[in-house]
Write a protein that binds this DNA or RNA. Structure first.
Lengths: 352, 352
DNA sequence: GTGAAAGCGCTAACAA
DNA sequence: TTGTTAGCGCTTTCAC
């Protein structure tokens, strides 16, 4: 190729973005020099470095990460596969995860594979093709799920709000039992003694754990565990209303506190009590679970609730993944603490 | 390098994943042959092709998309930048988008940049570095936003549930006016004649558009537009309750139908009417907006609502982006239709 | 302090 | 039909 084409054949690269060659040419230096200048590596005359950087800026040059990754054997990307349709639980998790990873210049591929194993396989396949440095799995329910075969290459993997069959896998979930205990102890500390637990279907591990937390807190406080006061059902407001109807209509002793399995149930319960003209929190205290602002905040009265700290869960997943990418071996099921968020529905001494 | 090292030095590549060379070696063919076999291109003896594919499978070989992209000048990735904290509106959009793109083997980078221009710039920068083939911007409010400078390389960009300053940009938003009209006409068709509109703050373009739709529907039907019946405020249940209190407490004529700006307002309104012992939908019909199942479905009665068809909006964004990536020029603001979802709160002739 | 060149894993054009 | 090779854009060693 003769020299007369030098100035004309620029930018035949990816979508016309300027390449390191263009910069080198314009700055009148070699490719290697540009690389050093851009990465602040090697030793260069200050003058040269500055000139190169200037030309690069003028040209709008951005190093091609694809080429960089190819060379380094690290893509600075991770894949996230959700089985929650990017739903309300996944969202804050992703937010926390993304924030932590972005700080390390790692980008996140989002894939939705709601309840479709074949689709999930395709996504994993594709992500492996893109040579992601790590993988995150999220699910709608924090129950165990079949282990995912990643083929030969063992990519660092973390399960968030999900668990794997593989006992060596790292799984991060909220401490449901602890959270439920927190809720129960809160009501006990307010002087409540007859606590009912209205919650979701028992096939959820979370339901069983929360029930255990509730019972343990009662036992620890020397309060009786009354069978009739444990009411699993489903996660809806309608069920919350129905359960209250059940609990407060028969002849037996009535509860003076409700530990609810989620905020929807709690809100339904509050509405039902309102219809029965039973004062909340004056006569009955309520604690919800999930701290879903749009439900808990809008309820009458607004609901004290247990926060799953999902954002922190996601952030922790990001930190763990980074450590694994850096070579550390991590594993086991980790239960991260929940916290109590006070609103008006629990404390009878507070003005509404 | 002597031949005795041939069998030993395998897999020094990215995280030890097998490369096309490993496959070639094991199958006893050339690299080019493997490439042809994997891509079903060129002409190969059936036998050879099969053997290669088999060896590749046995080795767990996945072509390195990074290398492929580098060569092709196409990364098969797009970036999504959200200003809604991956919130409730972004979610379904992303779902639709991702589904469409995944079918074309395009992966989506998710970036959150909620109300942080600097962070957004960083994300764009990073995505450009990764040579994304396209860019999608989503926002919390469908109002105009400053144009984003993508530097030299003009990457195909679409704004979803968001709009740009740049009049040439492609923006996809729900047809707020049409949706509101749909809601209003629905109530009119049920025989309602005194329709109020309770809605969010007027600085939202959506609020103004929905107001226009409401008014136009009234005018078109020959019904009066009553100033007192237009009540902008905020998006909460609390405001819905308050607005109903206002509308139904004074001496003037009372509405017999409420077109609400969102489901939360509608739900608050329904609750307030319940407290006033005004029957919904017997005496007053209500239509919500957004069709947020968790609100609309749980309200008493469940709310008829306008669906923004966000999933379809996202899907359309995906299709448009693909067309732009394929070279088509697209632009302008497109308003996609909303639809009416019937529940119990609107039709007085329906049993609850 | 700077340039030249090998190679990351792949594709495609060309040779054999 | 199969093999060879020149890149894609970058980093990094090694000469100069």
């Amino acid at each position: 190729m003769s020299s007369d084409s030098i100035s004309s054949d620029r930018g035949k690269s990816t979508r016309g973005a300027p390449t390191i060659r263009d910069v080198a040419r314009l700055a009148g230096v070699s490719i290697g020099t540009v690389s050093k200048a851009m990465n602040n590596s090697g030793s260069l005359r200050k003058e040269t470095r500055e000139r190169v950087v200037e030309v690069a800026a003028a040209l709008g040059f951005r190093p091609n990460d694809l080429a960089q990754s190819l060379h380094r054997g690290q893509s600075f990307t991770v894949g996230l596969i959700s089985n929650d349709s990017f739903g309300r639980f996944t969202m804050p998790i992703v937010e926390g995860l993304e924030a932590v990873l972005a700080a390390r210049r790692i980008a996140v591929f989002m894939c939705n594979a709601t309840d479709d194993a074949e689709l999930e396989r395709q996504h994993v396949e594709q992500l492996m093709g893109k040579r992601v440095d790590g993988l995150v799995f999220t699910a709608r329910r924090a129950d165990r799920r079949p282990h995912i075969d990643l083929g030969v290459a063992g990519v660092p993997t973390v399960y968030v709000f999900a668990q794997s069959d593989d006992p060596n896998a790292l799984a991060l979930v909220p401490d449901d039992e602890g959270g439920s205990r927190l809720a129960t102890e809160h009501l006990i500390s307010l002087g409540r003694k007859r606590l009912a637990h209205i919650t979701g279907p028992e096939h959820f591990e979370a339901v069983r754990l929360r029930r255990d937390g509730y019972r343990r807190a009662l036992t620890d406080a020397g309060l009786p565990v009354i069978d009739r006061f444990y009411k699993p059902g489903d996660w809806s407001e309608a069920y919350g209303r129905q359960a209250v109807a059940d609990l407060f209509s028969d002849d037996g002793e009535k509860p003076d506190g409700l530990v609810c399995g989620n905020d929807q149930i709690a809100r339904g319960a509050a509405d039902a009590l309102h219809d029965l003209e039973i004062d909340v929190p004056g006569e009955v205290s309520i604690v919800g679970f999930d701290n879903w602002e749009v439900i808990a905040g809008a309820a009458r009265p607004p609901l004290t609730s247990i926060d799953l700290n999902l954002r922190e869960l996601g952030a922790e997943a990001g930190r763990s993944l980074i450590r694994m990418i850096d070579g550390e071996k991590l594993g086991g099921v980790h239960r991260l603490p929940c916290s109590l968020v006070l609103r008006a529905s629990s404390d009878p001494n507070t003005k509404n």
